[in-house]
Nucleic acid binder design. Sequence first.
RNA 1: GGUCGAUUAGCUCAGCGGUAGAGCACUACAUUGACAUUGUAGGGGUCACUGGUUCGAUCCCAGUAUCGACCACCA
Length: 962
Amino acid sequence: MLDQFFNAAEAEQQIYERWEDAGCFKPSMDTSAEAYAIVIPPPNVTGVLHMGHALNNTLQDILIRFARMQGKNVLWQAGTDHAGIATQMVVERQLAEAGSNESRATLGREAFVDRVWQWKEESGGKIVGQLKRLGASCDWSRLRFTMGERGAEDDQMQAAVRKVFVDLYNDGLIYRDKRLVNWDPHFQTAISDLEVEPKEVKGHYWHLRYPLADGVTYEHPVFDEEGEPAGTETRDYIVVATSRPETMLGDTGVAVHPDDERYKDLVGKHVILPIVNRRIPIVGDEYPDPEKGSGAVKITPAHDFNDFDVGKRCGLEVMNILTSIAAIVDGEEADTAAIPADYRGLDRFEARKQVVAHFEAHDLMQEIESLKIEQPFGDRSGVVIEPWLTDQWYVNAKELAKEAIAAVKDGRTRFVPENWEKTYYNWMEDIQPWCVSRQLWWGHRIPVWYGPEVFDGELNQTSASFGQVFAAETEAAAKQLALAYYQREAPDWGVKHIEVVSDWNSALGHNAFEADDNDTIALFQDEDVLDTWFSSALWPFSTLGWPGETEELNTFYPGAVLVTAFDIIFFWVARMMMQGLQFMKDIPFKDVYIHALVLDEKGQKMSKSKGNVMDPLDLIDEYGADALRFSLASQAAQGRNIRLSTKRIEGYRNFTTKLWNAAKFCQMNECANWDGPIDPSRVKEPVNQWIIGEVARTCDAIAKAIEGYRFNEASDAIYRFTWNVFCDWYLELIKPLLNGDDAEPKAETRRVAGWVLDEILKLLHPFMPFVTEELWEKLSEDGPSRDGFLMMQSWPSYDGFENAAADAEMDWVLEFVSEIRGVRGILNVPAGAKPGLAVVNGSTETKKRLQRHRDVLMRLARLDSIYTDDDVPAGAVSVVLGEATLALKVADLIDRQAEGDRLKKRIAGLEKDIGGIEKKLSNEKFLANAPPEIVEEQHQRKADWSAELIKLSDAFAQLEQL
RNA sequence: GGUCGAUUAGCUCAGCGGUAGAGCACUACAUUGACAUUGUAGGGGUCACUGGUUCGAUCCCAGUAUCGACCACCA
């Protein structure tokens, strides 16, 4: 016998292990079956499961389990992501916290990367274990990692990344460029636009006076207190505003709009830049907006994206004044910029204070404005990002985007919900070059080796130029390329060997070529690694064995659907589209289902700093994985975020208990279906015929909803059927049959009830895999053993299982009971009281139904007797059911006042409704334009309501006479 | 500034061109009955506002207001 409750904590782990041991998660590789594949959005390998993962993987698991039960050849490709910056950050922090003297710098690259691998191995299994606790039925035997395997020669995942890079390079779609990047001074790496988070912070605009050179002055308009023009004043300076005053050290010009009357004549003149005392030009450019600020803009081409463009147009110098940690430069660059000694090496914020102080001290500060300003922050480091001029590798995203846009436009890939397509287009159509190099150590090293450049057969030794690029998938291939190159381009050198050295400095020494006997050229590999998303972009095919040609690749590419949240449409989805189309010549997935974000109860994003994080594992411990999953699925309506509350999860935990107890009831009553499929045409009892049809309808609704990614509708359908139809009605309705002595209906009912329970387990399984599997197994203990796991059962299909006559009859029974219960409630008839009931004016059909369901009606409506009569007995309470009046004989039990109120209220309601319909039916336009079935419906409704009105009015009149 | 979304019961949210729904909360009643992690019943809504289309609008369209998200910009 089943226990009182489902013990999730005990059962879940065991069940999961049995599934996995039995190989249930592996694809059938049945070639006759339709292939269905989903690649998991790989979580950070060292991360922990959060609510977003829980939702994301619950939805995928529902799709996967559903497809598996449908007999498809199903692969849920599992894997984890190396998460470059995030993981490197964690390990660096660990080193710092360990308190030893070790740091990234002291360890050096190799040892540090080793540490990260070590950390990956220690913690990398954790998230996988957590996904298992959620019930995710991924094929773990195919687990992949974006970085491949540690130290493995010829690792396929790494080979995929290198091949993509090299192929794109050879096609001119990857190139090296010197331009401003978003520089993260904390990690000392470039980051992509997407990794920059603009945040509003308190700041200032400092309005600075730059003195005009050569004694120039101009007339600047002034305004009085009311803002009215009040003539002009003569100025020997020009005012510019900035939120980053320290950048003035790198100013190489001041721009004004060429049509700006105030400054027109100043174009071509110069200012003397304070502090550094450099003479810089005033230029005319369209960029400054005369309406904003003073209308004059300081131009710092090396440290501002807009200024960079202005500088380019106006031929201004680009003068770098910041180091990689965003301190003011020292040495050669500082000399060039004429930076005074007391600024050199200063942190940017210290320098800011000092600059401000200088301006104030020298009467050069026009105004300090305090306001909120938007500043760019690194999403991982949390420090202010500086635009910085560096050499980086870029992917020509614009070119790759063309096909990726086309694939969505022509419907090869479809977004669900559709409106995300627009977001995708908006971004794709204005896509910027993708900076893919990162100055990190943890990641795929860029497969590029540099050698000395050759000009006219001569080695270019000026500034030690190593501009010759050899992009190759292996070091050996790079060497080959280089050898061929130098022998071809510089035959005089007599190069015979290529050597790879660790860095630029060693290469410089090797390639000195001072002695004629040097026949070796040294190359060194690019120090940088690739953006994590570069490898993630290949995920749909790299995980399946590409660049090899594998059976899995042939079978499972493209995938059926990608399930993800909108926040990585740009990071990931768009890039998978681009790379998939480029390298597989086909879309990576047919559908992209974009689900909601999971927020806390108040609609806030969960974050550690807010302290409102809900840990899915805690919730699983408390309520069971099934309850959490169901809660997430039931709220996964398209286009809205999920506010998660424990109340709701608790409710679905109760649902598992309800199901469990229903199963226990079936077990106690020997309700089981050991005889396989049921033949509805041989089922005789209306209640059984009806419930079979309800199962069929529910199954259909669930399947349609899942196929349309309407998870909330699907979970709703199975919930309602299980609780409100099966438990609340069916089990109550069959109790008399089960307790009765009539052998044949009893046997039929036992079998049908058992069958329905089995079907519920199947239909519910994708949502609540654990409790359903547990029940499937526990219930099997009483009978012949069943054919394997529930999760491997076929998704049911019911054709011709519905029975309209049974439905009509049972609807009548349900309404009968509901009406009587309702009137009892309103009139406060004590639950223990069992009045008699007269059925007046019942048709033959009604009388038959009364006969068949007498026991059930008396039981559920709590009646003492049911009989037919010609008139409503005096003092009885009338309820209208179809053509009949149900007269509850409760005269001495009820509150007459309450009954009068009830009737009045109902009568008034009916009169109002009938009035509305009459108005409609007298409207000729309605009759002319509305579809006939609607008109007919209105007529029918009017007739029904009018009949009821008459009966209730009679009843009211009678009550008054008493 | 651009784009997208939201506004429905006390709360959280579904839904829909033809009688307004769920869960939770609330109220009353029930207790050794599969289940109190329960059952039965009930109260509660001008579907943000203003126009338009329509025989009919909570639903479609336009506008307004409020809230939110994303993108861009910010001297």
